[in-house]
Design a protein around this nucleic acid. Sequence first.
DNA 1: TACCGGGACTTTTTT
DNA 2: AGTCCCGGTA
Length: 806
Amino acid sequence: MLSSDIEERPDEERPGEGHEAPQRSAGRYKLPRRGGADEAGSLHAQWRERLKDSLNQQQLEAVTAPAGPVLVLAGAGSGKTRVITYRVAFLVGAMGVRPQQILLTTFTNKAARSMLDRVEQVVGDSARAVTGGTFHHVANLLLRRHCELLGYDRNFTILDDSDSRAVMKLSRNEVGQVSVEKAFPSERLLQDIASAVVNTHTPLDRLLTRRYPHLMEFHDSIQRVLIDYQLRKAGANQMDYDDLLVNLLRLLAPELHGASAGLLGPEADAPLPPGVAQRDLDAVRREICGRYTHILVDEYQDVNHVQAEIVRRLYLGESLSAEPSDVGSRKSELAGPDSTDTADGGFVDLDVSASGFNTPQLSADSDLRPPTSDDLRLLSTDSTRGLFVVGDDAQSIYSFRGADYNNIRSFPDRFTDGHVFKLEINYRSTPQVLELANAILQDGDPLFRKTLRPVKPAGAERPLLLACRDGGEQAEFVAEQILSLREDAGLKLHEMAVLYRAHNNRLEVELELTKRRIPFVVRGGLRFFEQAHIKDLLSYVVVMANSRDEIAWQRMLGMINRVGPKTIADVLVKLRGPRGRFGRTEDDEYGGPLGRFTMNGVADSARGQAKTGLMELRDFLRGLRDEQLAGTLPASDLLRRVLTERYHAYLEVTYDNWRQRLEDLEQLIVFASRFDSLAGFLSEIGLSGSFTGQEIIDSGDVDDPEEGAVTLSTIHQSKGLEWRSVFVISVQDDVIPHRMTRANPEEEDEERRLLYVAVTRAEEMLFMSYPQVTETRDFQRIINRVSRFLHDLPGKPYDEAVLEWG
DNA sequence: TACCGGGACTTTTTT
DNA sequence: AGTCCCGGTA
């Protein structure tokens, strides 16, 4: 069996090692280049031989590339997943890398899971020790261990989009009294700004000038709001999605002290907690980098600045020196346009020895184990490190959240000792589909042009563009066509998908499918965990887990009759520790906000009905807390108690569709029962990419037996997926490219790539359609034109038709 | 004074 | 489905 081979394989036989030691010099890591030919007889060669059956030549070269930096430019449908999967298998099987040394980041958790399942089939059970998931997942994992060094409690809560908007609202109100009357940016916009500052590593003034010039007059107030937002989250022991990334980077980059990476000025960046020294951070950094010696990144074109820097630090981490601690503040001040590119940024050699390697104790419930003696040996004797990134700049579609395709473009310059491989053979689609896809790119920015070469035989038809009368007719067409594909062409429902630019494009199709009883699953839209009743129930549990979470308190208190914003504010003030903000739990003699609330003097200070309600809540929480302190109550039991003893009654009187919602809550409890720690459950929820309760329960492994269901998805969500037959609906101007991008050519070109992504999802059949007329809310009729991306494509690589019923 | 219910408006894409 | 604003009510 192969996996036992690996375990027993002595290190000195690892190919390419021992003959010629890798060389380090300032900032460069050189590795002797190895081909496959002179390796006859080695494990490496055996694996090459073995992989030949499963991979084409290009793929094989990429998979069996030497360690060090590797970039695989993989066109749509060219076997990217395959390559990354086999690379993991190859690292473990042929290069003797221990699975726990491998870190695999993918765009969704589902992708990571399915890749690792496949690796497991090739390599054996040991593959389970690979750490895999989204950047946010990995960050969460590492921060649960180490966040105390950054001033957080381990039970920090993760703010989802709506939570962080709620926090932003508080900050906005706090600061905004003066400016609110004017057209001061909404919470929503402020969120976007805060996120862009961090993810593109751009100082506020520069960001405003470039992207929101009309907001320049509010610069100072915005800055104050953002600083308040930053401090408020930290005070409440919360991290939003960006904080997860930035704080992970702080663990890896000793010179970045603040949670805003210095971008909002020293005010926003709390100093390290007392007692934490630079060398503690250094130790953690070395531990993390020592553990993960091989980093694999999927969809690299969609990483943002912070993620790219995380990747770089992980890969080079231990060869970066610990810079003197005062450098941080100096760097922060300098942080400007030019500091975004730190690729060559002055790191010097560090003596990589295991001596002085400080290993904090890790608990066993985590994926993270303390480095074993083997890990340490590897660190000292085996300096082979790997960075394997895979992506396609033609499919970069996430710049709105800070992704920057320049990261993939500049990879060869950043890592000059690396290798680049290109995969251009498309296995997915028919030549007709590819002809259209190529043409769409050909018409846009030359930098993104790609030519995919088909291997599939020609399909029966070219892609079809259908002009429908209106949205209703478009929906009818989709439904009818789905039925006829099922009956005449024998397609299963799960082999078809309907893709659209924005969620509201979906409604009519959804209606029509429902009417005809065609089963479908929706990806995207309202997230399961963001629905009111789910958040209501969770708020109790969040308060139990992190009683400093202001947002959860707000929500929980708000459910009490006759308690509104005013009463909530009063209570929250009383819950605060002596220092104004929600103090750290352990230095608070009252046991934090929860402790205060369960004592006399808080709940009973209100009057009237509010008082009664607050007292009831107090008694309930008292009981819950005592029980939780007595023995650890699993998350599911906790939820069950809240539901039966408290929330059920509220649910029934609040929502008319409470039956349905109750079912959701039951599902939630089932889901919760899979977790043994409350914190684990809550962070999974915060980070989950799953969208319906059912999907969460199934967690993707139950594929509907035969028929399945049609998939409805945004184009963004469809990335990386494929179907035999694909419908792209509402392909009119102002939808794709979206109206919002009209002013900005770069954004518009991203829309083009979005259409490219949509088209390349199709294996055999592609139907595009648009309504010729749409109605606005105020009954104005809009005449639509087909998307300019399709309008005058040279050679018209699709058939055009007007719908006729027959 | 604080809270509540009804009506208008919102949404580009996501971890 | 959620949020904001407004006028009515405890």
